[in-house]
Simulated assay, not measured.
Amino acid sequence: MIEVRNFTKRYGDFVAVDDLSFTIGEGEIFGFIGPNGAGKSTTIRFLATLLRPSSGEGYIAGHSVVDDPMAVRKLIGFMPDDFGVYDGMKVWEFLDFFAVAYKIPRGSRKKIIAEVLELLDLTHKRDDYVNGLSKGMKQRLCLAKTLVHDPPVLILDEPASGLDPRARAEMKALLSELRSMGKTILVSSHILPELADFVTSIGIIERGKLLAAGSVQEIQRTLRSHRRLQIRVTDPDLAQAEAILRADSKVRDITSYDHTLTAEVDGGDTEMARLLQHLVGSGVGVQSFSEVEMTLDEVFMTVTKGIVN
């Protein structure tokens, strides 16, 4: 649904984004991660047809961002990182304004606005003035206006920026609900906990270059050759389990805490199965045996160098 091919943006001698390429499949939530100044907003503005590239191309559902921007605008809902509201305008009037801009027929607008207000839990704010809304409600309203024309693709730049913890949790729930409705979502952030538990894939950008893209698990496998196992055993068997692991040539860096052993293991699923079989076959009471995935924070810290433009 979203494809970026060799996108580059220069401002004189300064290269804001350098030869960026990635794809996002239909129905994915793609987390676009990087520090401030990494090139996230530049890339997003390009995909939203608001910025022409120095070179490269982008496609939304097969339509060229460069050559067919009007078709692209019908397919996307764009939520910028900073937006204003109009003084003296009520919530429903704000949404009606954007519905008119998207050329939604007069006879359909009232029903569509009511549905969007219900989806975003804003029905009770319908007649409130937009400049009197809280930060969280304004964020909801901005997301609501991106949905009035029912776009299949959402491009959201820091949608939870400045929100309190409850509002951030509610925003994540909304995005998950939109994905369940079939939307493809690109969401950027420099705050990793906002993305960790609901994105389906990520792209990590630093100094205008894409350093990694894919699922967290796929990226993890490219970053380290070993697997991290966490094995919980019954108390009497802890010493025996540790001795078995230390004697195994594929196991390294064992730590023990509260009846749980954590071990770094070279190899794939076959090695994991062999170790489990060995422990059980030796009479060790194994209560749990699982792989510990790298967190999004660990992936980010491993891939990036902490350099900004």
Rank of each mutant, 00 (worst) to 15 (best):
F32I: 11
G62T: 00
T302N: 13
A169H: 08
D121P: 05
I155C: 11
I231A: 09
P69C: 10
T184Y: 13
S41I: 04
A144Y: 09
V233F: 11
L238W: 07
G267W: 07
G162W: 03
V66E: 13
V251L: 05
T255G: 14
R126V: 01
E206Y: 12
K250H: 12
S108I: 05
K90V: 10
E293D: 04
R274W: 00
D266G: 06
S201C: 12
T43K: 00
H226P: 00
L50E: 06
R73L: 02
V91M: 15
V100T: 03
V216W: 04
D13T: 00
S134D: 00
E242N: 15
V233L: 08
T23P: 11
L195C: 08
F83Y: 12
K9D: 11
D150G: 00
I60W: 01
V284T: 09
V233N: 09
Y257S: 15
L47D: 03
S288E: 14
V284N: 12
R109H: 10
D197A: 03
K74A: 11
S201V: 05
Y102T: 03
T146V: 07
D18K: 14
A101Q: 10
E194G: 08
E218N: 06
K209S: 13
D128P: 04
D18R: 13
R252I: 07
Y11A: 05
A241T: 11
D164C: 15
V187F: 06
A273I: 05
A71P: 02
H149P: 00
Y129D: 03
A101D: 05
D128G: 01
D248E: 13
K110R: 15
T255S: 15
V130S: 06
R109M: 10
E115F: 03
E118F: 01
Q220S: 15
M1I: 00
R228D: 07
T43N: 01
E28K: 15
G182A: 06
L51C: 08
K111Q: 13
G132S: 08
K209N: 07
G39F: 11
A173W: 14
D121Q: 15
S176Y: 02
I205G: 04
T123L: 09
A16W: 08
A241F: 12
R126K: 15
E242Q: 15
D248W: 14
G34R: 04
D68Q: 14
V85A: 04
K90I: 07
M171R: 01
